[in-house]
Design a protein around this nucleic acid. Structure first.
Lengths: 211, 211
DNA sequence: ACAAAAGTGTTAAGGCTACACCCATGA
DNA sequence: TCATGGGTGTAGCCTTAACACTTTTGT
């Protein structure tokens, strides 16, 4: 089947900045290796994503692409915006709609088997293909901006967690130390106790969930 | 010239929520009338915009479309995001990248001659084509969110203005009354006096500009 | 008993809101 | 002198940031 138009058309893709918490709670980014020798950035790492289908929503396209490329199901996504400079893709005009997506720890553990998709700690990223570094910046900024004002971290965390866990996550994402007492006051409105406690080596922690 | 692809491609457009201040400082939206009888929403009003060219940035496309459709030059624009639900355009898959744009009062006065482009007070809008009402909402929300924290209103206003002028503008945009003294304190960091005063019927007002 | 993480209060400073009166000018 | 919009200060409240010690548990 051929499709013929009287004007050239741009390609439209969706790409996602997918964050997850890996071992030790390090903030990690999901990347896919570009495996087609003839294509630009062969063997480089890139944000997962791909071309949209004609009858899908943008979000639907992203869900499908991530399932195909990485096996992941995205429980949360929000649009970051469109990146469309001519020249951002050497193959021609490709406009991408970028998303921020967050997945729970279980998804990060499971995703490690595919050789084409890997989690990288944010502090140890390989060079990224295309303008994906700029998209990543936008995603990280969005995540940081939402942390203290909305329960955006919910999809990153397990169902229940201690406030110590939560502070470590926030601290890692913001890349700065946080005062324990002030932190607990600030996120107080975002969480509620589950009634459970976590037994461990030391004093048991009260467990919380996002409201 | 024909362009043939092995997959169907979406069209990409840019659209702008263009705000300006009309007579009496009413917040107004620039709309264009859809004039092609065979096209959807014929005779309806729509956000200005159009198809991108292959070698332009998205912002460049928007500037060109607005020049062509309305004669306006946009001194300020920021991206709102992509709107791409299948079905948002009856003709087929059309993904639009929406922008918020702001123009100075002089542009609002001048733009009134073209029958195809008109300024409408925000309180008296006609029904909008496509999903443009949703895009408008996003634009208005963005403008409101920026008012108190950034000098985003700068491109809406003339070079210099009194604090009374400014308060009326803010009050119109936020659609709520503002306390005079608190308002002046809050925007104090965003403006600086020009050294001029405006003579008028009453006590002359000190004139300010955005920093 | 000790090591390790959990949990908790207070103070000072700055920002926000509500509120009412005097000022400068032209007519 | 009056009408009109321009201009100003303060008190109460809330939020934020800085800061150190006690508690609970397992070993």
């Amino acid at each position: 089947m051929k499709y013929t138009y009287s004007f050239p058309k741009a390609d439209v893709t969706v790409d996602a900045v997918v964050f997850g918490l890996g071992v030790e709670g390090v903030l990690s980014l999901l990347l896919v290796r570009r495996g087609r020798p003839k294509e630009p950035f062969f063997d480089h790492w890139a944000l997962p994503g791909g071309f949209i289908d004609m009858d899908e929503t943008l979000e639907g396209s992203l869900l499908r692409e991530l399932r195909e490329e990485t096996g992941l199901i995205l429980p949360y996504m929000e649009q970051l915006g469109a990146f469309g400079d001519p020249g951002r893709d050497p193959r021609g005009r490709v406009i991408t709609i970028a998303y921020l997506a967050l997945v729970p720890p279980a998804a990060v553990k499971g995703g490690d088997d595919a050789a084409e998709a890997r989690w990288f700690p944010l502090q140890a990223l390989p060079p990224l293909a295309f303008d994906h570094a700029a998209i990543l910046e936008a995603g990280l900024a969005r995540l940081r901006a939402g942390l203290m004002v909305s329960p955006i971290a919910r999809p990153l965390l397990p169902e229940s967690f201690s406030l110590g866990d939560l502070q470590r996550v926030y601290s890692a994402i913001l890349d700065q130390p946080l005062d324990k007492r002030n932190f607990r006051r600030r996120i107080n409105d975002l969480v509620e106790p589950t009634g459970e406690r976590r037994e461990g080596k030391h004093r048991p922690a009260i467990l919380y969930r996002f409201r």
